[in-house]
């Protein structure tokens, strides 16, 4: 049996499938994954609609931000918790005892979570558009689709980075839960990052989704200006670069984190 060849596609697909099954059979996941970001977005939209006087462009920017919040909320919760779920179930050790590198298994989970988050994002978007009667006109549809896909990948890669923390220790869950709201703010989903203090802007620029969100808005809203003074191509380039960096870092960290967890004997903790 030593000739068993591990297929990356087989592992990613199996991992996605299992995550999806677990999601559908456990409705309580819907609360942090869908309902919470939805409520948060709706509250934000009400505030925007009053303050901005229902200017179509501003509301569309807010709705798009709301969609991103939905995507991010699901990604951060799902990615972190899918490994936390393994710890709690006692399956982390069984999973690690398989010869598939952990990064492929986590990639499958994160891909599912991001996909589910994207559906959540679309759901929020549609409700927001209908509720606030914002015009659906997307200025540059091909760029909008491209920006959304690149941002989707960027979120997945970011989710994988976070999953490392949970593999390392059960305490990693505190961090992934704790950064959900700060990342909403730092990536400019609701408020332009130029409005943030300079030192937080530094963090914002290091986050791939910041550039992705900017690209989405620029492609959707004609004449949109986030204050970043860059072109949409630069946004996309930064998103892609950040995604590659996160993926590479994740690949390296998963190997290191597994070693540390095995040295510390924390894989079986729950």
């Amino acid at each position: 049996m030593s000739r068993l060849e591990i297929s990356r596609f087989q592992v990613v697909k199996a991992s996605m499938g299992l995550t999806a099954r677990n999601f559908f059979v456990d409705p309580q996941w819907i609360i942090p994954s869908i309902i919470a970001p939805f409520v948060f977005t709706m509250v934000s939209l009400f505030i925007f609609s009053r303050e901005a006087g229902q200017t179509s462009a501003v509301l569309l920017a807010a709705v798009l931000g709301g969609g991103m919040m939905g995507m991010w909320g699901t990604t951060v919760y799902g990615s972190g918790e899918s490994i936390g779920f393994d710890r709690w179930n006692g399956t982390l050790e069984c999973t690690l005892s398989a010869p598939s590198p952990l990064i492929w298994i986590i990639m499958g989970r994160v891909l599912w979570n991001t996909m589910e988050g994207s559906l959540n994002g679309v759901f929020i978007l549609v409700i927001g558009l209908l509720w606030f009667r914002v015009g659906i006109g997307i200025a540059n549809m091909p760029m909008f689709v491209l920006s959304t896909m690149v941002t989707f990948l960027s979120l997945s890669a970011f989710g994988m980075l976070l999953a490392n923390l949970i593999v390392l220790s059960r305490r990693g869950g505190f961090i992934t839960n704790g950064i959900e709201i700060p990342v909403y703010i730092a990536t400019g989903t609701m408020f332009p990052i130029v409005a943030l203090p300079l030192y937080i802007q530094g963090i914002s620029y290091a986050l791939g989704p910041t550039w992705g969100i900017d690209a989405i808005r620029r492609s959707a809203i004609a004449g949109y200006n986030s204050g970043l003074h860059v072109s949409i191509y630069f946004d996309l380039l930064m998103t892609v670069m950040a995604t590659i960096l996160y993926m590479a870092l994740s690949g390296y960290l998963f190997v290191q984190v597994e070693k540390i967890a095995k040295r510390n004997g924390t894989l079986g903790d729950y």
């Binding site: 299992l18 677990n22 059979v25 179930n89 006692g90 399956t91 050790e93 010869p99 598939s100």
Partner: peptide, 24 residues
């Protein structure tokens, strides 16, 4: 012990999942 299985999916799905992780 009781831990170490995906409780919310079927026994068959557990086995197929781990088969995939082992590259079967």
């Amino acid at each position: 012990g009781e831990r170490g299985l995906y409780n919310r999916v079927s026994g068959l799905q557990n086995l197929l999942y781990f088969s995939d992780l082992y590259g079967v």
